[in-house]
């Protein structure tokens, strides 16, 4: 699991980017660490796939954490975390409604803002504001390196030398 996870610090939050298969395991770990207040789940259309962003706060010491995972368009399935934090129930429904993300294990996954008969997921970038398909929209290729891949370990000595050389010349 550790190999398929990228951890970074963004402003005042810890951000974890994980493979969708490890998403559930990481969430269980965070729940065990005492992150008890779910702020939101946001779905984002990244152009190459869909991103789920889960934001949590720990009430005890007000630590904030963000969990991200990217899934492809043709299989947008993410495990649900409703049993860990019941407060994300409507956010997962909203992400399903707006972007078509399917949360496995959600007790009641149906549309929340639009009517059940709607067939389109309007927040996808392939639709314009009015809900019509954008002509000529093509999905981008999956990014390389993969978003959850940790950055290569830095080699401090070489990097330092290169920087100094750059400044001198």
């Amino acid at each position: 699991m550790e190999a398929r996870m990228k951890q970074e610090r963004l402003y005042d939050e810890d951000v974890y980017t994980v493979h969708p298969e490890d998403y559930r395991a990481l969430c269980e770990r965070l729940a065990g660490e005492g992150y008890d207040f779910p702020r939101a789940i946001s779905g984002i259309d990244m152009g190459y796939g869909l991103r789920v962003t889960l934001q949590l706060t720990r009430m005890k010491d007000l630590a904030k954490v963000t969990v991200r995972t990217d899934v492809p368009y043709d299989n947008p399935v993410v495990p649900s975390v409703t049993d860990l934090w019941p407060g994300v129930e409507w956010y997962e429904r909203e992400a399903y409604d707006m972007l078509g993300l399917r949360f496995e294990g959600h007790p009641d996954l149906r549309r929340i803002l639009l009517e059940d008969e709607w067939a389109l997921h309007p927040l996808l970038k392939r639709y314009d504001t009015g809900g019509y398909p954008v002509p000529g929209w093509e999905p981008k290729p999956w990014p390389d390196p993969e978003p959850w891949a940790p950055p290569p370990p830095p080699e401090p000595e070489e990097a330092g030398e290169a920087d100094e050389g750059g400044e001198a010349s």
Partner: peptide, 11 residues
């Protein structure tokens, strides 16, 4: 009609 193009296939 629920949507302007409500007959689009579900992704």
């Amino acid at each position: 009609e629920p949507g302007k193009d409500g007959r689009l296939p579900v992704l």
